[in-house]
Write a protein that binds this DNA or RNA. Structure first.
Lengths: 341, 341
DNA sequence: ACGTGTTACTGACACGTGTTAGTATACACC
DNA sequence: GGTGTATACTAACACGTGTCAGTAACACGT
C-alpha cells in the first residue's frame, strides 16, 4: 500500500507552494491564480489521484460536515423499523444536497439513554437529529442551552428545542371524520400506545374533536389502549366486542395494533368492513397487502427525515429559521377496511 | 457558547503536562503515573467536562474508527427497504462492539456508481461495506488491489474481494424439497429477478438441483422470470396458469413477487394452498400477515450485517481471516400457503 | 521619479491530539 | 561512591490541512 499523496506532493509536482494548491483546489474566491498555474495544479492532483484528508480539514476548519441520526430503540420496534428506511432516505438526501455526511447511531436498550452525547461533545458531528427523545434527558437540555444544533424527531412538551413531527391530531381527525361521513355514529378507538406517549394523547384528542365536531357524544367506554404490538390490539378489540352495545366502526391509531384488531374481528366471525369498519394509522408497508386492505393515515417518513435534516443544517449554518416546530400533514389512504368502496 | 475545553486546559487545572493528561485518559499501559496525579487529572477532566476532539485524534492516529455502509438504490427497492433495518442494526451492533462508528451512504440513481470512492480516498472511514456491488466498477477493484479494507454484501463473481451473502442455492433447495415432500411433482418457479443477477441464477439452480435430487425432470416451460415487483409476479403467474398442464405448486424466489403471484391466483378463483401451493423467498415483514400467510425462506438480515461488519473490522485491524467468503444459511418458515398444516 | 494599486503567489502559524525521546529524582546494589 | 534501574513525569515533534499576513514584480497616472 503506497503512501497517500498529500497536498505537499501535489505542490512539488506542480512546482508551486502548498498554499497555492489549497487555493486552487478549494476554488477560493477573490484570489488571483493564473490560468496556467491553475491548470498545472489540477493536472498534478489528477495525476497523483489526490484527495484531501478530511480529518485534517475537519481539525483546522472546525467543521465536520457530518450530522448524526440518533435512533432510540424503544418498545415500538416493529413500527419504527418499517419507518426507518424512509426517514433515513429523507435525512441522507437532504444531507447530500447540502454537502453533509450522515452518521447513524442506534441506542440499544442496554446502553444509557444519553450514550449519544459524546457525538456532540467529541466533535463527531456538527449537529444531531434525535429520534424518540426522552424528557428526563438532562444532557439534552444542557447541549441545547449551550447552543449545540439539535433537532428532535417527535415532540418534547415544554421545551423550545426545534422539532419535526407529524400532525397527529389532525391526522386522527381526518380518519374519524371519514368514518362519520360513512354514516357511523358508534365509533370505537384503540390508541397506539399508553397515554404517556405524546403521540397517543394527540391522536386520542383528534378522535375526540372529530366526534365533538359532528355532535356525537364522547363515550369513554369506547376507548381502549393499545401498546405498539399486534397482541395489544387483539385484546383491546376483544374488550370492545364485549360491550353491550358494540361499535360499528373502530379507529385504531397504529397499523400494527390494527392488525391485531382485525384478527380479533376475524376470530369472532365478524366481517370487515360490513360488520365493523376499521381505519388505522401509520400506513406501514404491510397495510396495503392485508385482507381486507387497511384504510389508514399515511405518515410521510421521507418528508420527516428531509425536514429534520434541512432544519438542522440551517441551524448549523447560522441561518435562524423563524419556524422551528415543523408539523407535517398526514394523508388518509382509503382502501377496503373502511367500506368506502 | 463557551469555548470547548482542550487537553491543555485539563493539564493546567491538574497542574501537569498535556502529555500526562493524554497518558492518563487513554490508560496507556506500561507507563507509571502516581495514583494521586491520575486522580487529579481525572477530576480536572470531569470538572471541565472534557471530551477529546476526534478530528485531532483521527489526524494524528491515522485511524477514523468509522466504517461506512454504502447502499446502492437499485431496482429492487421495496425488498431492500424492508431489509435495511435488520442489516443496519447488525452492522451497527458489531461496530459498537469493536468501537467503531457507522456512516450511512446511499447512492441515489442520479449519482455515478462510484460516488462512494471519496469515502475511502479522503480518509473518511477505515473500511467500507458495499451493498449491491457492480462488477464493472473499476474503482472498486483498484481500491481492493491497493489493500483498502472492503467487504461486499452480495456476490461479485470472479474476484477474491471478501463478501457476505446468503446461501441462495441451498435456500431454494430447502423450499423446493419442502414442496416435493408434500407430494407435489409438477412444481413451477418464478425467479426473483432476471438471470443477470447472481442471486436469481443461484436460486434457480437450487430449484433445479432439488428436482434432480428427487428424480423429477426439469421442465423449462415451468420457469418464469420475475423482476423484483408485484406486477412481474402477477404476469409470471398468469403465464404459468395459461399452460395446458398447470403446476400444483410454485416456488417464487421473492416474497414481493410472490404477492403478485398470489393475486393472480386469487383473480383466477384458485385457492391457496388447496389448488396451488406457494412458497416464497426473503421473509419480508409483510409475509406473515398475508392471507394465506406465506411460507417462505427467511434471510437473516441482522446476521448478514453483523457478519459483514465483523469481517471488515477484522481486516481493518490486520487480522487476516482464513475465510473471507461468508455464506449464511437461510431457514424455511412454514406458514399457510404451502399447505403443510 | 514617486506613490498607488493590482496580480500572483508564498511563509508561517494554528487546529488538538498521540507519542517518542529524554530528564530529574530516588533508591538499591556491590 | 559510583553504577544501574525503576519511577514519574515533560518537551518537542508530527499528523495534513486552511488561511492570514506578507512580498516581489509590474503597470499606471501624474
Amino acid at each position: 500500500m503506497p503512501d497517500r499523496p498529500t497536498s505537499r506532493d501535489v505542490a512539488r509536482l506542480a512546482g508551486v507552494s502548498r498554499t497555492t494548491v489549497s487555493l486552487v483546489l478549494n476554488n477560493v474566491p477573490d484570489v488571483h491564480i493564473s490560468p496556467e498555474t491553475r491548470q498545472r495544479v489540477l493536472e498534478a492532483a489528477r495525476q497523483l489521484n489526490y484527495y484531501p484528508d478530511v480529518s485534517a480539514r475537519r481539525l483546522v476548519s472546525g467543521k465536520t460536515s457530518t450530522i448524526a441520526l440518533v435512533w432510540h430503540r424503544g418498545p415500538d420496534r416493529t413500527y419504527r423499523d418499517g419507518f426507518l428506511p424512509g426517514l433515513l432516505q429523507g435525512v441522507t438526501r437532504a444531507a447530500r444536497q447540502y454537502g453533509y455526511y450522515v452518521l447513524f447511531r442506534p441506542i440499544e436498550p442496554d446502553e444509557p439513554d444519553d450514550a449519544w452525547v459524546e457525538l456532540a461533545r467529541g466533535r463527531h458531528t456538527d449537529g444531531l437529529i434525535l429520534s424518540g427523545p426522552r424528557s428526563d434527558d438532562t444532557a439534552l437540555l444542557d447541549l441545547h442551552r449551550e447552543g449545540f444544533p439539535l433537532v428532535l424527531h417527535g415532540q418534547l412538551p415544554g421545551t423550545d428545542i426545534p422539532s419535526v413531527d407529524v400532525d397527529n391530531e389532525s391526522g386522527a381527525m381526518t380518519a374519524v371524520r371519514h368514518l362519520l361521513a360513512l354514516g357511523h355514529r358508534r365509533i370505537g378507538m384503540v390508541t397506539n400506545a399508553p397515554l404517556a406517549y405524546t403521540a397517543s394523547r394527540q391522536r386520542l384528542e383528534g378522535y375526540r374533536r372529530a366526534l365533538e365536531e359532528a355532535g356525537v357524544p364522547y363515550d369513554e367506554a369506547l376507548v381502549r389502549y393499545g401498546n405498539f404490538d399486534e397482541e395489544s390490539g387483539r385484546q383491546a378489540m376483544e374488550a370492545l366486542l364485549a360491550l353491550a352495545e358494540q361499535p360499528t366502526a373502530v379507529f385504531v391509531a397504529s397499523d400494527m395494533v390494527a392488525i391485531g384488531a382485525l384478527r380479533a374481528l376475524r376470530e369472532h366471525g365478524l366481517r370487515v368492513p360490513e360488520d365493523v369498519a376499521v381505519v388505522g394509522f401509520d400506513d406501514i408497508a404491510t397495510s396495503r397487502y392485508l385482507t381486507p386492505a387497511l384504510t389508514t393515515v399515511h405518515v410521510p417518513a421521507f418528508g420527516l427525515g428531509w425536514s429534520a435534516a434541512e432544519l438542522l443544517i440551517r441551524i448549523i449554518e447560522g441561518d435562524t429559521p423563524n419556524e422551528t416546530q415543523v408539523r407535517l400533514e398526514t394523508e388518509l389512504v382509503v382502501r377496503e377496511s373502511c367500506g368506502a368502496r
